[in-house]
Computed example of a mutant assay.
Amino acid sequence: MSGEPADADGRLGPGLLVLVVGPSGAGKDTLIAYARERLAGRPGLCFARRRITRPTDATENHVSLDEATFARELAQGRFPLHWRANGLSYALGEEVAQDIASGLIVVANGSRAAVAEARTRFARVKVVHVTAPPEQLAARIAARGRESAEEVLARLAREPALDAPPDLRILNVDAVDAAGERLTAFLRSLA
């Protein structure tokens, strides 16, 4: 990641990273897709595609990497932010650092466990915390068909705490457009 503009503390900037975080099944990808559609073509705003060590499917817009490729790209410094969760490796790609260096607002599906690290790597970070009641989370995770019942329970048991209150909380319990409009309005206010 050398050569990227940084602030006095060496953090990536001057752009803004908006991390959308919350438990599995909260609807983060759905709300991000909703906002991406509503804000298409808006200057200064882009949406990141995570790298994940899981095959692609219809439930998430990500770049699939095997563990060896992920480890190699990590060792090469291609990820401005990475984390492990639920037995998988996740990362934001080097285009995120480039977009941040260009002064853009980058919206990314992140992890509560990676927020503190994001604040050390990026000069400007906003956090959106999306959640839902446990029974809704369990039903949504199970509906994806990717995990066994035991894996669903393990995802629900994972509760990393945020290092500070989020900039926006969304309780995603109603129709997608209700929570989606809250995220969209928040992102509009930043641009």
Rank of each mutant, 00 (worst) to 15 (best):
L92F: 09
L81S: 11
F70G: 05
E95R: 08
Q98S: 06
N61F: 01
V106S: 13
N86E: 08
P134S: 05
E117K: 11
E135C: 00
A161I: 02
R54P: 02
I100W: 02
R112W: 06
A142E: 11
A85T: 11
A85S: 11
L156V: 00
E117H: 04
G110D: 00
P80M: 10
S111W: 02
L92K: 05
A143W: 11
E117Y: 07
L65I: 04
V115W: 04
T56V: 13
R119Q: 14
L81Y: 03
E135A: 14
A161D: 11
A113N: 06
E94A: 00
R84Y: 06
V63M: 07
A142W: 01
R72T: 15
P166L: 07
E73V: 00
A138G: 06
I100H: 05
V96E: 01
R146T: 09
F70P: 06
Y90C: 04
L153I: 03
K126P: 01
A91W: 01
N61Y: 00
L153G: 15
A157R: 13
G77N: 13
A116Y: 00
L137R: 13
G110S: 07
L104R: 15
G110T: 10
A113M: 10
P133M: 06
T69Y: 01
A75M: 05
V125W: 08
V152P: 01
Q136L: 15
A149C: 04
G93P: 03
R119E: 15
R54K: 08
H82M: 01
G77C: 06
S111E: 07
R158Y: 12
G93W: 02
P160Y: 03
V63C: 00
T59V: 12
T59C: 11
P80R: 11
A101T: 02
V96W: 05
V127P: 00
E73N: 08
T131P: 11
R112K: 12
E73T: 02
N61S: 07
T69Q: 15
A123L: 03
P160R: 05
E151N: 10
A118V: 12
W83M: 09
L88S: 15
A68D: 08
E60Y: 10
R155F: 04
G110L: 02
I105R: 04
R112N: 08
P134Q: 13
P134N: 07
V127D: 06
S111C: 09
R140V: 12
I105D: 03
A68K: 01
L65W: 15
A143S: 14
N109D: 09
V152T: 13
A164F: 13
V63H: 12
V130R: 01
E147L: 10
A68P: 01
V130Q: 00
N86G: 04
R54H: 10
D163Q: 12
R121T: 10
E159F: 04
L65E: 13
V107D: 03
P55N: 07
H129R: 08
R72V: 12
G110E: 05
R84V: 10
E67C: 07
A154Y: 00
Q98R: 14
R78T: 01
E60Q: 14
E95T: 15
E117N: 07
E151Q: 15
V115T: 12
V115K: 11
A58I: 01
I141M: 05
H129G: 00
S102Y: 04
A132W: 02
H62Y: 11
R146H: 09
A101S: 10
T131A: 15
A71K: 12
Y90N: 03
E95F: 09
E95H: 08
